[in-house]
């Protein structure tokens, strides 16, 4: 295993996702263990300018495939182009962020195309002799499994927020690639983005509301989330009630989050919810019921009415921030 680490960047409308820096930083660390170089790949349209910045995260080379046909992520075009690049570069390891927009889909597609092993949603990766061992959650986080990858290239898709971003010097030399998107059938029709919404899986702070919200008025939750620059989450029962969109659901059948701070308000702590947030660094629970299971997982608990407590928390943090 010594032919380099290839990190696939992910950009949406000319902005790299945070997980790109996480994957590059982790890729650099792996390249260090293997004694090889880190090469970044950027696909998109008009992406040369933003690509230069990747040297800061340790990319020795930055391959840029600038093509209007690559403006939006499309499974077929992206798989064709990256499979070609992998064929030429022959990397030992391919690393990318496990996102819904690109990384999970692309890694699965590449794995099948190249008959390459894949560890999805890794939270830890280590090199052991000649082996690459990845730790990844299963059963929505109820189990952590260590998987060994055999074959080439070894593809690791990292879970957003799991790997630390570390700046390190790389030469960062840009190489423009002339790429062929190959045979494609998927047609892009349109994209609708909610502006200013912070993605749950990438947020440093998540404030969630559950059944205790009693309805779709989440303003007390939203205000605190906004003040902390965080995202709003919801329990499954709140989503089932129609109070929040499916994209806000935290848990085994929703999103798994690991923010620095998770505030669960009016959430009792069903096992399928706990699976989705137990890897948060600090958990705060606010619930009327002192017997709620959520308190057994929370670092700090307040027994009380969330509609009284949350606004007070918001005010108190405002004071702190001066």
């Amino acid at each position: 295993m010594s032919q380099g680490v290839l990190a696939i960047a992910e950009q949406v409308d000319g902005v790299f996702r945070k997980v790109t820096y996480e994957a590059l930083s982790e890729g650099k660390r792996i390249a260090g263990s293997l004694g090889c170089d880190l090469t970044a790949v950027v696909l998109g349209s008009d992406v040369e300018n933003i690509s230069k910045g990747l040297g800061k995260y340790g990319a020795d080379r930055i391959l840029v495939a600038d093509n209007t046909a690559l403006k939006e992520y499309m499974t077929d075009a992206y798989t064709n182009v990256i499979a070609d690049i992998i064929g030429k570069e022959n990397p030992a390891v391919v690393i990318l962020g496990a996102t819904a927009v690109q990384g999970r889909d692309l890694s699965a597609s590449l794995s099948a195309r190249l008959n390459a092993p894949l560890a999805m949603e890794c939270v830890e990766i280590r090199v052991e002799n000649d082996k690459l061992i990845a730790t990844r959650p299963m059963y929505g986080g109820k189990i952590m499994s260590e998987v060994a990858l055999e074959g080439k290239p070894r593809i690791v898709a990292t879970r957003p927020n799991a790997m630390a971003v570390a700046e390190s010097a790389g030469a960062g030399s840009i190489e423009q690639l002339d790429v062929d998107t190959g045979k494609t059938v998927l047609q892009f029709v349109e994209k609708k983005m909610e502006t200013g919404k912070i993605e749950l899986t990438e947020a440093d702070v998540v404030v969630s509301g559950g059944r205790g919200m009693g309805g779709s008025d989440y303003s007390v939750v939203e205000k605190l989330a906004e003040l902390l620059g965080g995202a709003v989450g919801a329990s499954r029962s709140a989503v089932d009630e129609g109070w929040r969109p499916h994209s806000d659901q935290v848990g085994q059948t929703g999103k798994v989050v690991s923010p620095n701070l998770y505030i669960a308000s009016g959430i009792s702590g069903a096992i399928q919810h706990l699976a989705g947030m137990s890897s948060s660094k600090v958990i705060v629970a606010i619930n009327k019921d002192s017997e709620a299971p959520i308190f057994s997982k929370a670092d700090f608990g307040i027994v009380g009415d969330l509609f009284e407590v949350l606004p007070l928390v918001t005010e108190e943090i405002k004071k702190l921030k001066g």
Binding site: N115, E146, G151, I283, V309
Partner: peptide, 27 residues
């Protein structure tokens, strides 16, 4: 080619403390 070596339970979270106080404001 992707093989599970070992499964482990995630580190058990210790239930932390209940923040006490006379009033909600104190808590």
């Amino acid at each position: 080619i992707t093989k599970i070596n070992v499964m482990q339970l995630p580190p058990e979270r210790e239930g932390g403390r209940i923040v006490e106080g006379e009033t909600a404001q104190e808590k």
